[in-house]
């Protein structure tokens, strides 16, 4: 009994460590996919609740970072499938993403250009956003992205290409 309790405590400690390591990254992923900060936070909380409730003993060798991302993406898609969400999301106001602590690299990127890129990203389709986040920002292999999203590798490449073309067009306005 005490051994089981110790295992649970150990697991909870491990969950906390995973939260510290992946929480911000997952929050960024969800905010990019959902375009809504509150919904993104809800999804992240839901994901880590699922992690805590999981039977950790069966997945000792799990790549938890990849698992968390996949669960987060699925949770985001579940939210977006709801009709009320689609309607509400269309009316959602654009949220200005403000960088509280700009790094030197970030300051090099002009504020207006950054806003233009973020605005263009929000206007991408859901699938394009998901593919770009997983393939480019999370650096998942194309095959893994295809499996996570239920697409073929060719579809992943097409969505990625179109997303990048759209985003590069905003940069082209500076020329």
């Amino acid at each position: 009994m005490d051994g089981h309790r110790d295992d649970r405590s150990l697991w909870r400690a491990q969950c906390e460590a995973l939260y510290r390591e992946h929480g911000m990254r997952l929050l960024r992923v969800c905010r990019l996919v959902l375009r809504n900060p509150q919904e993104a936070e809800d999804v992240v909380h839901t994901v880590f609740l699922k992690l805590v409730e999981r039977d950790w003993r069966a997945d000792r060798d799990m790549a938890w970072g990849r698992w968390l991302t996949r669960v987060a993406i699925n949770a985001c898609r579940d939210r977006q499938r709801a009709a009320w969400w689609r309607l509400w999301d269309q009316m959602a106001e654009e949220v200005e993403l403000v960088d509280h602590d700009p790094t030197p690299d970030a300051t090099a990127l002009a504020g207006e250009t950054r806003h233009r890129i973020q605005r263009a990203f929000r206007q991408l389709s859901q699938r394009q956003r998901e593919v770009f986040v997983l393939r480019h920002l999370e650096a998942w292999p194309t095959q893994d992205v295809a499996e996570a999203l239920g697409l073929s590798t060719g579809s992943v490449k097409r969505h990625l290409f179109r997303a990048i073309v759209r985003l590069r067009e905003t940069l082209g306005e500076d020329a």
């Binding site: 929050l27 890129i117 973020q118 480019h136």
Partner: peptide, 11 residues
């Protein structure tokens, strides 16, 4: 540039 714009979101 695109990665910089999208990777740095507020906490």
């Amino acid at each position: 540039l695109i990665g910089q714009a999208l990777e740095r979101l507020p906490a």
